[in-house]
Simulated scan of single mutants.
Amino acid sequence: MSVALPAEPLPAASAAGRLCFASLGSGSKGNGTLVSDGETCVLVDCGFGLREAERRLARLGVHPRQLDAMLVTHEHGDHLRGVGPLARRHGVPVHLTPGTWFSGRLGEVPGLHWITPQSRFAIKSLVIDPVTVPHDAREPVQFRFETRGCSLGVLTDLGHPSDHVAEAFSGCDALILECNHDPHLLRTGPYPPKLKRRVGGNWGHLANGQAAELLARLGLDRLQRIVCSHLSEHNNRAELALEALTPLLDGDASRLIVAAQDHGLHWQAIS
């Protein structure tokens, strides 16, 4: 499939110097998050097949060759599926931990860069902190981005809100936060018992209430946008995720938004 190069270089940076982000889609069928400050644009994970990833990028006004890098959180298919094909076709460098690489699920890529958890690095104008998280993968990380005094946390796929995670993501201006499941829906839902134990365990995924607990610990004063992400198709509903987080905002849900599986989330700018 041929994807035309967008007329505008990066629509996320229409206001020069502002940190912006968008979602290709979020959920068990595929994940991908764009982060841009106008000078630098990176894609966190790509859990969609090549053609679908190209289509979703085009919908957000980005051609794969405009990506400065792809950052991989871990090796599960809903985060890794399209990384290798996209990198090979368009020559996009890939940053990931050695543990993720040695899972053997990526294949050869043209530009490979190691991530060391808890060791800050930069891609052009973006400063990136990779943070170890409790999840059932080989060497999983999530990311905090900073540029020009603004910060964005991308925090999905963790089993419980650990002290380490709370400290690393405090004081963000925007946060993409996992709200994977409602415990009752998970318990009574269609998953087999082993998978239910995995999802609801300390190395699985955050329940709505755990996301609310973590958000309260992070502090809300600076947060301009809170994105509920990675909602389970079978074990959660958007209204339940919003219901869990809204009380922390004194009933004002204007800062809350949901990243959908099918349509993702259009560009959001941080002041």
Rank of each mutant, 00 (worst) to 15 (best):
L256W: 13
R89V: 03
E139V: 02
E167C: 04
P183C: 14
L223N: 00
H164Y: 09
H76R: 14
E243N: 09
E39Q: 14
E39C: 10
L106V: 11
D250L: 05
G111C: 14
A69I: 13
I176V: 15
E52D: 07
R89L: 10
R222M: 03
K196V: 00
L223I: 06
V42Q: 04
G99F: 07
A58H: 15
D136T: 02
S28N: 05
D78Q: 11
L195Q: 09
C172L: 10
W101I: 01
A87T: 07
I257Q: 11
V44E: 03
H234W: 13
R255T: 14
G61I: 01
P117I: 08
H205T: 03
L80Y: 12
V3F: 15
R237Y: 09
T40S: 08
A166M: 13
E243L: 02
I270H: 13
V199K: 04
L215W: 00
L43Y: 09
S23L: 12
L155E: 07
T188M: 08
V42F: 04
E139A: 04
I257L: 10
N236D: 14
F169L: 02
R255Q: 13
S28A: 08
H63C: 11
G47N: 10
D163N: 12
W114T: 03
P247I: 00
L177F: 14
S14Y: 10
P85E: 02
R255A: 12
P130H: 13
A137H: 05
C20F: 08
D250T: 04
L195S: 02
P117G: 05
R225F: 07
G17N: 14
S26C: 03
S14I: 08
S125R: 00
D250A: 08
M1Q: 11
L126R: 07
D252G: 00
V199D: 02
A269E: 11
A168I: 09
R198S: 00
V42D: 00
G219H: 04
H263V: 06
H74R: 08
V94D: 14
L186D: 08
G27L: 04
A244D: 11
A253D: 15
E239T: 06
R88G: 00
E108R: 11
S26L: 01
P161K: 01
P9M: 13
A15Q: 13
G149R: 07
K124M: 09
S26F: 05
T40H: 13
D221S: 14
G209P: 02
A238W: 11
G153E: 02
N31R: 03
S23C: 08
G201S: 03
T116Q: 10
H76L: 10
G171Q: 12
G200L: 00
T40N: 10
E146N: 07
P192I: 07
P247M: 04
G99T: 04
I226T: 01
E178D: 08
G107R: 13
L67P: 01
G189E: 05
P98K: 14
L155N: 06
S28P: 01
V133F: 13
C46N: 01
L10W: 14
L158C: 01
V141S: 00
P190I: 15
K194N: 06
W203I: 01
E178Q: 15
K194T: 04
P140V: 09
D221T: 06
S14T: 08
S162M: 06
L218P: 00
S36I: 08
